[in-house]
């Protein structure tokens, strides 16, 4: 029925035990570092590191399989697009040209292009495990508290938590509304022509929007009655104090990204060349 996508499962591992805020910061720093560097040596080391962390977390393959396939599909499309639009990007960057195979017209496969695209593939491979880990090992209840901790206003942070709370309810509303619409003859399947279909979708969206507004009014009244938004700050039931391992993980991360940056820019260019 429903594909289980990126749902948090309660497990015990060193990664799960880190606080949400730590994981959020690590994920952000890690992604930026991986985006900046084109240094193959750094990327390879970072890949090893992220795979090791992934292993430690013991998340199960079935929990992320669907999303992983989805990402791989985009990964592939991205590579085809890079080659299609800029087949000699590698040559431009590295300043040399070693032809391997002439394909057609302006499309020639060069060693530089292969190396360049290999680096891009590595970047993906470095970031994906961390992104998956952040989503799979952070309790949704901790999202809001983590955002608030890294400086986001608590009202905005709480709206993230509210969205997570009410998405299943709104999905249920949508199902009910679309059933009753279909029973009355509003067809939103492919059988209907596109303009008609769009019009029909609008007539389903109207009640959905109205019921959602009604829901929002109820929730905001309920929240106000329980004192939301009166203080300048608030505490979080699910907030956890930073432990020694949080500080250790953060230090390690800062160290790695600093090292990666230094190595990358040591010779003045962020592209590491083997040519």
């Amino acid at each position: 029925m429903k594909a289980k996508m990126l749902t948090y499962t309660r497990q015990d591992s060193p990664v799960h035990r880190l606080t949400g805020a730590t994981k959020l910061i690590i994920f952000a720093v890690w992604s930026v570092s991986a985006m900046i560097t084109y240094d193959t040596r750094c990327l390879l080391l970072m890949l090893l590191f992220s795979l090791a962390v992934f292993r430690i977390s013991r998340v199960r393959f079935q929990d992320y399989a669907f999303v992983l396939y989805f990402i791989l599909l985009f990964f592939l499309l991205n590579h085809i697009a890079i080659f299609a639009f800029s087949p000699l990007e590698g040559t431009r960057i590295y300043g040399t040209r070693h032809d391997l195979l002439h394909l057609a017209g302006r499309y020639t496969l060069t060693a530089e292009q292969l190396f360049y695209q290999f680096n891009i593939a590595l970047k993906y491979a470095v970031v994906i495990p961390m992104a998956l880990l952040f989503l799979l090992t952070t309790d949704p209840s901790e999202f809001a508290a983590s955002l608030n901790r890294v400086g986001v206003n608590y009202k905005i942070a709480y709206s993230v938590s509210l969205a997570l709370r009410y998405i299943p309810d709104i999905q249920q509303d949508y199902e009910n509304i679309s059933f009753s619409a279909q029973a009355r003859g509003i067809d939103i399947s492919r059988k209907e022509k596109l303009p008609k279909r769009l019009k029909n979708i609008v007539s389903i969206l109207l009640p959905l929007i109205l019921t959602s507004i009604e829901r929002i009014e109820k929730i905001s009244t309920a929240m106000e009655l329980r004192g939301f938004g009166t203080g300048r700050t608030r505490t979080w039931y699910r907030a956890r104090p930073f432990t020694r391992s949080d500080y250790a993980a953060l230090c390690l991360m800062v160290g790695i990204s600093a090292a990666a940056t230094i190595i990358t820019f040591y010779d003045g260019s962020r592209f590491y060349s083997i040519f």
């Binding site: 329980r226 004192g227 939301f228 608030r234 505490t235 979080w236 039931y237």
Partner: peptide, 12 residues
């Protein structure tokens, strides 16, 4: 259950 306590900034 904790919601109103959170809003009153009660220590965790």
């Amino acid at each position: 259950i904790a919601f109103s306590l959170e809003n009153a900034a009660v220590p965790v």
